[in-house]
């Protein structure tokens, strides 16, 4: 078989696995409402509630907490969606659907890529809806910053879905996944600069935040949004570096996912 037929086979498998994710999501209305509404409510309540009490010293007076919290909310919405879409791997395995995918004559990487891109697209669509709200809280968006933000968001969604994929592939129960989510994924987000900047945190917390790849992802989104005007908070590294770290994380997660499909559990 030559290279182009192989590529065609690969793409067909990826596309069909990805499309299934979207169709399933669309058929379950409660999922749509839950995933879009909850981070919005979360953002509004925490942002408005804490806004008056906490203020970052380096932030300009016209930037309130609601605005600081905005990029973090977008990343949170994507974390939720990624988790929801990778939980379906556990259901697919339990219900039996996954077996027929595993015995199909397709490259193992296409199983990983199909599932991850489905989750990525869902997360990205929701993130973009939220991004559309930016002007309402006083963030003025240029075309360049929207494009850059979209690229960052895509990479973050891909990395997070990939991370969820690696965890979910090895799990037997959704309960176990929830435990991991509370213990590992939510703190990953909490310590990413989404909720508070590293500059004001205790020493060891700041160190963890520097090691957390999601920190650079949140920074990339923040930097994309404030390309021209003021930067809300002093960030760790310039935008290209943040983007590079986010890209590396996404690629790494894809490679690990493929390895997990190849060598992980099959039943």
């Amino acid at each position: 078989m030559n290279y182009s037929t192989q590529l065609l086979r690969f793409s067909l498998a990826v596309l069909t696995l990805c499309r299934r994710e979207l169709v399933r999501f669309y058929r379950q209305r409660s999922r749509i409402i839950g995933v879009i509404a909850s981070p919005l409510v979360f953002w509004f309540l925490i942002g408005s509630g804490l806004g008056g009490s906490f203020r970052h010293p380096s932030a300009p007076p016209d930037v309130n907490y609601l605005e600081y919290f905005f990029p973090g909310t977008i990343v949170l919405i994507m974390l939720f969606t990624s988790i929801f879409s990778t939980i379906s791997i556990i259901e697919d395995r339990r219900e039996g659907f996954l077996q027929s995918v595993i015995v199909a004559p397709i490259p193992r990487s296409s199983i990983a890529l199909g599932k991850i891109s489905g989750g990525t697209l869902l997360a990205l669509i929701q993130a973009l809806i939220l991004l559309g709200l930016a002007p309402f809280i006083g963030i003025s968006l240029s075309i360049t910053s929207v494009l850059l933000a979209t690229v960052s968001l895509f990479l973050i969604a891909f990395g997070l879905t990939g991370l969820g994929f690696c965890i979910a592939w090895q799990m037997d129960s959704t309960q176990g996944f929830h435990a991991i989510m509370n213990l590992f994924l939510i703190p990953l987000w909490l310590l990413s600069g989404a909720l508070f900047p590293a500059s004001g945190a205790a020493g060891w917390i700041a160190t963890i935040m520097k090691l957390n790849p999601l920190t650079y992802s949140v920074a990339a989104v923040r930097q994309s949004l404030y390309l021209h005007g003021h930067i809300v908070v002093q960030e760790l590294l310039p935008l290209p570096v943040s983007l590079m770290i986010t890209t590396t994380f996404a690629l790494l997660m894809f490679l690990v996912s493929t390895a997990v499909v190849k060598h992980g559990k099959t039943l």
């Binding site: 065609l8 086979r9 067909l12 498998a13 596309l15 069909t16 299934r20 169709v23 399933r24 058929r27 379950q28 219900e95 039996g96 659907f97 996954l98 077996q99 027929s100 995918v101 015995v103 199909a104 004559p105 397709i106």
Partner: peptide
């Protein structure tokens, strides 16, 4: 060249019969 019928149903119950078969067909190129 093999076809497999599992004890646990491997069809996606949220999809239609046709959608399931289209999905399967794509996996077999």
């Amino acid at each position: 060249i093999i076809g497999v019928v599992f004890q646990n149903p491997s069809v996606d119950k949220k999809l239609t019969v046709r959608e399931n078969l289209v999905h399967q067909g794509h996996l077999y190129n």
